[in-house]
Simulated assay, not measured.
Amino acid sequence: MSRNFKIQPSLETLNKMGQNTISEVLGMEFTEIGDNYLVAKMPVDKRTHQPYGLLHGGASVVLAETLGSVAAMLMVDQDQYYCVGLEINANHLRGVTNGWVYGRTSPVHVGKTTQVWSIEIINEKEQLVCISRITMAVLKKQN
């Protein structure tokens, strides 16, 4: 899909949005903005581990939802609309014990009332760790 973002923020702006949120707690950082995709990284450490020392699946889902939600927001006129998650799924394909994981989201469908985003999370060896899909509702603001 080649639809471009309506808003082109800086990485600094995107990363400031994560202050005082779960993104900051988990150490997420946006690293790349394309015409219709975003990339962010997240550390695999004590903040994101499950009890066996592996990347927690829930942490991967938080990364995926953050990417999909922010990307959806960039597709709408924020004076008139906002986006909320309707559904997210994730398939965890490979364990990671340390280092960084990188998520990249791209649109599957951008409509007037819904958006669907695909998120691939890879490790530092560029191996697929998790694949996720999020469906977002596009809602009109009530003034």
Rank of each mutant, 00 (worst) to 15 (best):
R3G: 02
N4V: 15
N4K: 15
F5T: 12
I7N: 13
P9Y: 05
T13L: 11
L14V: 11
N15I: 02
N15Q: 03
M17G: 10
G18Q: 10
G18I: 07
T21I: 02
S23Q: 13
G27W: 04
F30T: 10
T31K: 09
E32W: 02
L38P: 10
V39I: 13
K41G: 08
K41I: 05
K41H: 05
D45N: 15
K46I: 08
G53N: 13
H56V: 01
H56R: 01
H56Q: 10
A59D: 07
V61P: 01
L63S: 12
L63V: 09
L63M: 14
L67V: 09
L67P: 08
V70E: 05
A71N: 12
L74K: 12
D77A: 03
Q78T: 15
Y81S: 07
V84C: 05
L86T: 06
N89A: 00
A90R: 05
N98I: 00
W100D: 00
R104P: 02
T105D: 02
V108G: 02
K112I: 00
T113D: 10
N123C: 08
E124D: 14
E124A: 09
K125V: 00
K125R: 12
E126A: 14
L128F: 02
C130L: 01
I131C: 06
I134M: 08
I134Q: 05
T135I: 04
K141P: 01
Q142P: 00
N143S: 14
N143I: 09
